[in-house]
Amino acid sequence: MFTTERIKVVEATKEDIDVIIAIESHKENRDYLWIGTYEEHEAEINDPNHVLWLFKEKETERIVGYALARLDMISGIFELRRIAITVKHKGYGREVMEGMIRYVFEVLKMNRFWLDVYPDNEIGIKLYESLGMKKEGVLRQHYKSERGFLDQIIYSLLKSDYLEK
């Protein structure tokens, strides 16, 4: 798919699903994203309108995270549905997000990159805002989890925003 300075991003396969579920279930990730089932991830892998990517260190091949996105090729929309990094405080999240944004606008030729984030994901929010993403609004009590009803903040970056940078 694409590479960054330290990471190569590859398409996930059915053999990777257990690893993805383990990443989602990790105590530092599980409060901030939906944990998919094996069947859901298998369907995403087989769906041409979804991408399920693994992030691997170039030098070691160690998996350091994953992302799931939905593509709307007609409207040029890339929805980042989930992203999780397993190796914290190394800058991998920023590096992967910068590479993903570049890939979305320069290779896929999308017009809009968007995501939602829970308000208590302060690290994610800080990263998205530092990347130039704009807060579009809040879906109030939009998701019910074990933690109760949660708001979701919508952030986006348009191709025109990206080209201005």
Score class of each variant (00 low, 15 high):
Gly76Glu: 12
Gly76Thr: 10
Gly76Leu: 03
Gly76Cys: 05
Ile77Cys: 07
Ile77Gln: 09
Ile77Arg: 09
Ile77Lys: 14
Ile77Glu: 11
Ile77Tyr: 13
Ile77His: 12
Phe78Ala: 13
Glu79Ala: 12
Glu79Gly: 07
Leu80Glu: 02
Arg81Lys: 07
Arg81His: 14
Arg82Met: 00
Ile83His: 08
Ala84Val: 03
Ala84Arg: 07
Ala84Leu: 13
Ala84Cys: 04
Ile85Pro: 05
Ile85Asn: 01
Ile85Met: 03
Ile85Phe: 10
Ile85Val: 15
Ile85Cys: 00
Thr86Ser: 09
Thr86Gly: 02
Val87Arg: 07
Val87Cys: 05
Val87His: 09
Lys88Ser: 04
Lys88His: 13
His89Cys: 09
Lys90Trp: 07
Lys90Ile: 03
Lys90Pro: 00
Gly91His: 10
Tyr92Leu: 10
Tyr92Asn: 07
Gly93Phe: 11
Gly93Val: 11
Gly93Leu: 15
Arg94His: 15
Arg94Trp: 03
Glu95Thr: 02
Glu95Phe: 05
Glu95Ala: 07
Val96Lys: 12
Val96Glu: 15
Val96Pro: 11
Val96Ala: 15
Met97Phe: 15
Met97Gly: 04
Met97Val: 01
Glu98Lys: 04
Gly99Phe: 00
Gly99Gln: 02
Gly99Ile: 10
Met100His: 02
Met100Glu: 10
Met100Phe: 10
Ile101Gln: 02
Ile101His: 04
Ile101Tyr: 02
Ile101Glu: 04
Arg102Asn: 08
Arg102Phe: 01
Arg102Gln: 06
Tyr103Trp: 10
Tyr103Thr: 06
Val104Asn: 05
Phe105Glu: 05
Phe105Trp: 14
Phe105Cys: 14
Glu106Gln: 08
Glu106Ser: 04
Val107Ser: 14
Val107Glu: 15
Val107Tyr: 04
Leu108Gln: 01
Leu108Met: 15
Leu108Cys: 04
Leu108Asn: 06
Leu108Trp: 13
Leu108Arg: 10
Lys109Met: 07
Lys109Trp: 13
Lys109Leu: 08
Met110Cys: 10
Met110Val: 09
Met110Gln: 08
Met110Leu: 01
Met110Tyr: 14
Asn111Cys: 12
Asn111Asp: 09
Asn111Thr: 11
Arg112His: 12
Arg112Pro: 13
Arg112Val: 13
Arg112Glu: 15
Phe113Ser: 03
Phe113Thr: 03
Phe113Glu: 02
Phe113Gln: 11
Phe113Tyr: 15
Trp114Thr: 03
Leu115Asn: 05
Asp116Phe: 12
Asp116Met: 09
Asp116Ala: 00
Val117Leu: 08
Val117Arg: 01
Val117Thr: 04
Val117Cys: 07
Tyr118Asn: 05
Tyr118Phe: 14
Tyr118Gln: 04
Pro119Phe: 01
Pro119Asn: 00
Pro119His: 01
Pro119Cys: 05
Asp120Pro: 02
Asp120Cys: 00
Asp120His: 05
Asp120Phe: 12
Asp120Ser: 01
Asp120Gly: 00
Asn121Leu: 05
Glu122Ser: 10
